[in-house]
Amino acid sequence: MASAVDTGVQSGRFWRVLIYVTLIVFAAFYLLPLFVMLVTSFKSLDEIRQGNMLALPLEWTIAPWISAWGSACVGLTCEGIHGYFGNSIKMVVPSVLISTLLGALNGYVLTKWRFPGHRWIFGLMLFGCFIPFQIVLIPMSQVLGLFGLAGTTAGLVLVHVTYGIGFTTLFFRNYYEAFPNELVRAAMIDGAGFFRIFWRILLPSSGPIIVVTIIWQFTNVWNDFLFGASFAAGQSAPMTVALNNLVSSSTGVKEYNVHMAAAMIAALPTLLVYILAGRYFVRGLMAGSVKG
């Protein structure tokens, strides 16, 4: 269903051309930083200093990528960012899985097994994912310390699950809202119980929303900086924190090519997900802002 005003008589050729030119100019605007990042990451430092930022490398080199991955100095250690990349993965996988599972169960309860007060509970959970997280930094650092989770990946998983379930619950709730109640009733009469209905009837039909939720959570958790910077120090820091440390460290020569290579490495996982499953990514964005 396109809503374009479809005049049978073609609108002027001039306008069509103008529209295309405008759209292409903006495409260039969005692509330029990525392009610059990419070409810079394949240049030597000398070429960067002498050449044009926008020019393709005269001599392509993957040395910056190798250095970023394995030997660049982040803080005091010079082992590249691969360890932090690993930290991010170790943090992302459990956070995403746990929060998605909890969200699915919550959405199921909040739509198919309603009880008095369900709207309040949902509202309170939903508000939790919009708060400025500065408000929880002080007590969270204390609680993590108390549990012995300060500076650990496990601590970050706890944090991301906690502040992720609001959104995952929202996604599944809206999805299951449209799931026919009669199916649940039919299964109930057929003798299936609470969990059986969930596993056998709802979950098999939840493919799209599971993908949406996983992508949303993956992107959010991978891209997080505030929690990582606050609760994971030194060697256990996630990728974004390491990247920021690498780029803003003031010691030594600024290796812009290595910085850009590291930025690309940090961007690749989410970029890849976006390219492979963009449709679901957009659906998640929409569901996270325009409800109903």
Partner: peptide, 20 residues
């Protein structure tokens, strides 16, 4: 008594067939 223990069966307006 729970629906599953009433020894009844129901045909729904939307048929409520399990899609999967």
């Amino acid at each position: 008594t729970h629906p599953s223990e009433r020894d009844i069966a129901m045909v729904f307006q939307s048929y409520a067939l399990y899609p999967n």
